[in-house]
Design a binder for these strands. Sequence first.
DNA 1: ATGGGTGCAAAGTGTTTGCAAGTAT
DNA 2: ATACTTGCAAACACTTTGCACCCAT
Lengths: 141, 141
Amino acid sequence: MRREKRQMIQQRMTRQKQIILDVARAHHDHPTAEQIYLEVSAIDKRISRGTVYRDLGQLSDSGDILHVKVPGPDRFDCRTGLHYHMICTGCGAVFDAPVDYETEIDKEVFEKSGFHVQRHRTVFEGLCPECIKKSKEKKEA
Amino acid sequence: MRREKRQMIQQRMTRQKQIILDVARAHHDHPTAEQIYLEVSAIDKRISRGTVYRDLGQLSDSGDILHVKVPGPDRFDCRTGLHYHMICTGCGAVFDAPVDYETEIDKEVFEKSGFHVQRHRTVFEGLCPECIKKSKEKKEA
DNA sequence: ATGGGTGCAAAGTGTTTGCAAGTAT
DNA sequence: ATACTTGCAAACACTTTGCACCCAT
């Protein structure tokens, strides 16, 4: 449960890290580490899962990509600014939510609780349009 | 990744389920399944982890307790209304956040995206007052 | 040259599940 | 009587890690 990382160590750019970053950035659909691993593998099959996890962690620590924490496997997002996500409980797909990050609420929580808020994460749960359509078709059948 | 549960099956109250519910409700500090298992074990050491996980899932499905999804192990909350949580990145403790659930934003997301929002989950990340104090002491030393 | 990075496989964490026996309704 | 529940252990999903070698700086 401990965290306590964040040492100012020198981060090196390697061939594998560059490939991982490129693959992650080419996506606009919140891939999982596994999906990224599969694509990276297709480019260079010698790159290991461990490296993909390590590099994705490092790249999100340094702000090059965003680490999205949702139920199920974590996702990664090339859009790095703070924003919210929607996850479909039908198919598991993750989307960016079309509402702005509310900065004010972080201050409000701090003032009311003394909890030093760094950020918040919001995930909307529901059915994506695709799955709504499918469930309607099923009812009619 | 599939979900697709929710059959209207008859749920039975058993001795073990009652103990698990009592233990969960006695907590106001967001215990993990493991913590609940340990306490339940102290009451009846024959109750298994599997049963604790199964029953906690069932009890939160039926709305008797709340399933809180945060980084790390999931938590359970005896406060069942929709509300937000704060997790301390220092010590991992979870608290209820002192701000109200925003119902409006669910509608807004639906209108802008067609995503049928059932609810959203917000988790504030930061340092709890306790950990702020500790990190100050460390700096002074 | 040197300290971070890599591949590999093993281990870790948190949770789910198949099965045969038990029990609430 | 029926069908949901249980305990157990094994399996599972996802992620981290120890180690010996490698390579960017």
